[in-house]
Design a protein around this nucleic acid. Structure first.
Lengths: 315, 315
DNA sequence: TTGTAGGCGTTATCAC
DNA sequence: GTGATAACGCCTACAA
């Protein structure tokens, strides 16, 4: 029984009889033998490894990680995870992936500068998720379209005074603001934009300001779900009913949004689709199907998820 | 310039002159050479790799991942991450780590059966975090002590009717229930235990039942923060003030608990400490310092974090 | 201080 | 259909 034969059997390559295959498999089972992927990669030209950096503390990243595992496996690649945490910065995360001889990199919501990402992309194929970076392949939701869909939903319910709580300089914030403005203008509405933010705290603060101002809007469109939850929380504590008095809509469809007692209408990002597009783009580069200089900004449509926090205005 | 010499320099081994080291380092820099850790592991007896399975969607796991990275690096080990996601089960996650020739395994909150974990532990060193498993090394918070601390805090504020919302069969639930019972008995209180659960939804349901029953307790001690948040939400929507009418306390100190408008009093688990203990235990086994048959249940004290959701009773 | 030889577990290439 | 051999990049041991 030669090593070569075992190799042939273990990777289902042609060149061995069925009886031999059976014998080899039995023997492997017997002694608990499993091929060493590291030695295999050492011998082969390609590692078939894609590196993936993500923030362990962001739940949306977890959805993307799941999708990336699935998509990569379908294309015959293994995924090497490298988490970004409070004690482990992105630079570090990337370095370990390079040392591991990954053929390409996927970075979810990277915080590195556009310049640093550009230099990295010059070294090896790189696809960024959930952030737009000029000169680097990027995959993200169509935030403009998502915001437009949200506004159109509210307008369809009969709302006129729709307050948008802005996300400042966060990834996607500029696009969502633009979408709101575009849809408001198209419907002939006043453009009401106020400072919002990314967290429950920001939403709560914005709602407090809103209530103090005296005149409530028909509806509030928050930059994201967390902000929307902060708004809802303050409204309800102040005796203002949602959606009877004010409708509220968020963005992301985070797990909290769907809970029985929250029922937040929101815009869902298609994490599985984003993951698949990113992996496919990366693999296309690895296969040499993409000219080095050509970078793409790949965009997927988010979808409106209607729940109980939006309804027609009372009057 | 021989390969052996380069090897000596790159791993800072003795046996090369300073001038030579300088030359080698320059040359490496020049051509962008970095040693291949995989080839190194192939040659060496030990891989110095520890595998880590965790749930990408559980935020507490992220804290542990961070701590494990730190602790493992301090002891000269590399960490291989293997996430458990909706499309990638634990069995799969473990298999990839075994294929990667990890010397030992860390599993955060595993869902595998105790028997399966026992068999795994027979194959290679294994330390389980955040769950107690008989016959396998486990590192977890002292849930009994945490629950006792929570009850004592409420008793100290003057509460007598303290309702405990149970976590069923979740990891740690039995211990927390026991801690509540012990502390309640010690303080001469009635033991009030109702079905709770792990999620906001469960907490909301429990609070609804509680309100329907007519007589509110002085305080509610929920199995975890998410359950506590569900309770608070329903109470507030029903016009019952927290903490003026009812105090609420959770368990975990999740990020949400500390938010400005939530301010949930809770029990914090020492994730960095748990991570360090787990890594140290695993490494001790790898170094052969632990007899194979001896398994330990290592426990760390959680700490009470007092915020605004608990206060003395109104009367 | 430096160079040489051999082998880690795998696969590709070539004989048989 | 099967078996021998070299090589992937690195490290250890030993010789120069």
């Amino acid at each position: 029984m030669s090593r070569a034969l075992v190799s042939i059997v273990m990777r289902d390559a042609p060149g061995a009889s069925e009886s031999t295959r059976e014998r080899v498999r039995c023997a492997a089972e017997e002694i608990g033998y499993r091929p060493d992927p590291q030695a295999r990669r050492l011998r082969q030209r390609r590692t078939r490894l894609v590196g993936l950096t993500f923030s362990a503390h962001q739940e949306f990243h977890a959805d993307l990680v799941d999708g990336i595992y699935v998509a990569a496996e379908a294309l015959g690649y293994d995924v090497v995870l490298s988490a970004v945490t409070p004690h482990r910065d992105e630079e570090r995360a990337v370095r370990t992936l390079l040392d591991d001889r990954c053929e390409g990199l996927l970075m979810v919501g990277p915080q590195l500068s556009a310049r640093a990402l550009g230099e990295l992309a010059a070294r090896l194929p790189l696809v960024v998720l959930a952030r737009r970076v000029r000169g680097v392949d990027a995959v993200r939701s169509d935030d403009v379209a998502g915001a437009v869909a949200g506004v159109e939903h509210l307008v369809g319910l009969g709302h006129r005074r729709i307050l948008y709580l802005d996300g400042g300089t966060a990834p996607g914030a500029a696009e969502r603001r633009r979408g709101y403005r575009r849809a408001a203008k198209a419907a002939g509405l006043l453009e009401l934009v106020a400072a919002g933010g990314l967290t429950e705290r920001d939403g709560a603060a914005a709602a407090t300001v809103m209530i103090a101002a005296g005149e409530l809007p028909d509806a509030v469109f928050a930059f994201n779900d967390r902000c929307a939850l902060g708004v809802m929380d303050v409204l309800i504590r102040s005796g203002i009913s949602v959606p009877q008095d004010v409708s509220v809509i968020g963005f992301d469809d985070s797990p909290l949004a769907g809970l029985a007692h929250i029922q937040l209408t929101t815009i869902r990002q298609d994490s599985a689709g984003l993951a698949a597009v990113a992996v496919e783009r990366l693999v296309a580069r690895l296969d040499g199907l993409v000219p080095g200089a050509a970078t793409a900004d790949l965009v997927r449509d988010p979808t409106l998820v209607v729940r109980g926090s939006t309804a027609p205005p009372r009057s």
